[in-house]
Amino acid sequence: MEIKELKAIARTVRCDIVKMINIAGSGHPGGSLSAADLLAGLYFGGIMKVDPKNPDWEDRDRFILSKGHVAPVIYSVLARKGFFPVEELWTLRRFGSILQGHPHKQSTPGLDCSSGSLGQGLSITNGIAIAMKKQNRDVRVYCMIGDGELDEGQIWEAVMTAAQHKLDNVCAIVDYNHVQLDGTTEEIKDMGDLVQKWHDFGWNVIELDGHDMAQIVKAYEMAAAFKGKPSVLIANTVKGKGVSFMENDCNWHGTAPSDQQLERALMEIGA
């Protein structure tokens, strides 16, 4: 798919996100918007090997959303990919919906794991990656982690596990938007030189602009080509990207836009 088309999909996903959360009346727009380009590139840029008609296909690539609160972004991507009808998006968080407030594998076609309690996704990713290697399956496992989520100690346990076992079929993606619920990541628990940290833990580190679609696709390809170590994409992003009044503001971590705000957001994104 052309970069231009990928950008158009990302715009559609952004519109879905703000609309879903507006209708639901609650949800997490900031981190969903910062991850939109990364996930549009992953699912539509010829990277993820999946089949919407056969969501449980054993040899599919896997995606684990460790920062489970940004469920709207993966729901939109899966719907646009054809795993379930787009109309389902407007039922987010409602009683009986296939779209739970945080990802629930058994409810939603195309989800590879439930998540929502932070810090756990990379361990799960490693486990799947080991299982695939044991069974000689050519499967890659992707895991999106929030930068605030890196406060969780389990992430670093898993970082060491992946390096120890040379899991080169693992690709972590850090959505480095610098904002968590209570403030900036620097104010709350400063991580210092994040690129150097992952490098020192034995990973192949790829730094990129997480909103530049050409860079995103190239980074995934570079990660796939790298052998002997797990790869991590440190993606520099903007929380709330695409909606000016949401950008870089922790108050939009978990707040739903009003009808007027939605109208303005949709105009700014311009699908």
Binding site: C113, N126, I130, Q135, A158, T161
Partner: peptide, 9 residues
């Protein structure tokens, strides 16, 4: 968590 991934795999 790793065991969960192994089970998923």
């Amino acid at each position: 968590g790793t065991a969960a991934g192994l089970a998923l795999g």
